[in-house]
Write a protein that binds this DNA or RNA. Structure first.
Lengths: 222, 222
DNA sequence: GGCCTCAATATTGTTGACAATATAGTCGAC
DNA sequence: GTCGACTATATTGTCAACAATATTGAGGCC
């Protein structure tokens, strides 16, 4: 077996955070991770830096990395900004779209459907996030693409932290709906469907009270 | 002298890119930078990774880092998203504002004014970007804060790439105008002033033709 | 002369050992 | 017994040597 790349390890950790096997606050020791993944500490260091920029972990100097605990305020900000980015992506995509891309996109949704049917949580997470990244990639907008990756990662963390049910109930139907509007060349309808989709995801969260960011024991026990 | 930190070196390089001493496409060799700043290559590597995430450099595997060449499309996307983020920041700031913060903010603008008067390009760049980051910090919204840092960096690069004049003519007046609206507790006016400010900055750019991303010599000489 | 191969060089990527720092536990004074 | 200082341990941070890869230039063949 070849050694794992930074991206592969980052994805594995991302998925573990997203499906709640790594809870917010969990300490991520470099040596431990290095052993688990069979790579050197230097590479783990790169991985942790990557995860930090994606907002999945917080690194404190001389202290190490822990899984981030997003605040409710952050969660709301992220959804707010994400709505703006997704709409911008759709606008760009609208001018870059062709038949080949459309086919590929519908195929992606088909995969989502299969994963949903098999109830494979990891695939569901990977594919439903991947849908949005794919839109950005096909829009051929480099900046939006990178931003979307970050936002999707952060959204995964938020869902892990604030979702009550384990079910990832936002199925592929809403994704397909967006594609159908694009196929019909109706940009406004696509944007509206996207906004609705994001609102649906957000509404599945329990963002009423701020149970997330104790940050310190003092706050947690106040 | 103590050795420079990653942040300090990253800022130095950022400023050099922003005031066009480092042009887009310039190769950044690790050994060279290590010698210039008197630090080990390992630290330079961290710096380059930081700059990459901020969109200032592009790193290709086994090839090294070069100063990024933003495309016109990216530039427009960045301004578009930035407008959304800045407005969100103002909304959050509006609820967190107090007299102390207001004083500090006006003091910042005063520093901008001095830098402008002295025509100190580096200070002008640092302070006028810093104004927007400061707003995000005072809004106490962690996610928006990180995002704003990235957007400010990317905007600096865009201005270096697309601005025709050397003059950083968007003076502190527009910043002050935003603060005055905040002081008057008029959120909508503040947001409008911010949008106007960003449009002003963008309008100083030459985004008509895509002269930016040759990407390869072949394209540049076509 | 044009083109391919191959060696020489320059540059990035990786590793393991070592230093610096923080954490946890222990001992002693009071 | 409680508090504080101190030691031992665990963990992160740094570095310099080495390996892998890409670039450049020279030589030879057609």
């Amino acid at each position: 077996m070849d050694t794992l790349t930074v991206e592969q390890i980052a994805e594995r950790i991302w998925l573990s955070i997203a499906d709640r096997r790594l809870r917010p606050g969990t300490r991520l020791k470099e040596a431990e991770l290095a052993e688990v993944f069979g790579v050197s500490r230097a590479r783990i260091r790169q991985v942790l830096a990557t995860l930090e920029r994606e907002g999945l972990v917080v690194i404190e100097s001389n202290k190490g990395a822990v899984v981030a605990k997003p605040s409710v305020a952050d969660a709301k900000d992220i959804f707010h900004i994400r709505a703006a980015v997704e709409q911008r992506v759709l606008e760009r995509l609208f001018t870059e779209l062709d038949a080949t891309k459309l086919v590929e996109m519908f195929e992606h949704v088909a995969k989502e459907r299969i994963a949903n049917h098999n109830n494979n949580q990891r695939d569901i997470i990977k594919l439903s996030g991947g849908f949005h990244v794919m839109l950005a990639e096909m829009a051929e907008a480099e900046f939006l693409c990178g931003l979307m990756r970050d936002l999707v990662s952060r959204t995964s963390l938020i869902m892990a932290a604030f979702r009550d049910t384990n079910l990832h109930n936002c199925g592929p139907d809403e994704h397909e709906q967006i594609l159908l509007h694009l196929k019909n060349r109706d940009l406004e309808a696509a944007k509206q469907a996207m906004v609705h989709h994001l609102e649906h995801v957000e509404s599945a969260l329990n963002l009423l009270q701020d149970r997330a960011p104790p940050k310190s024991l003092r706050e947690a026990l106040a």
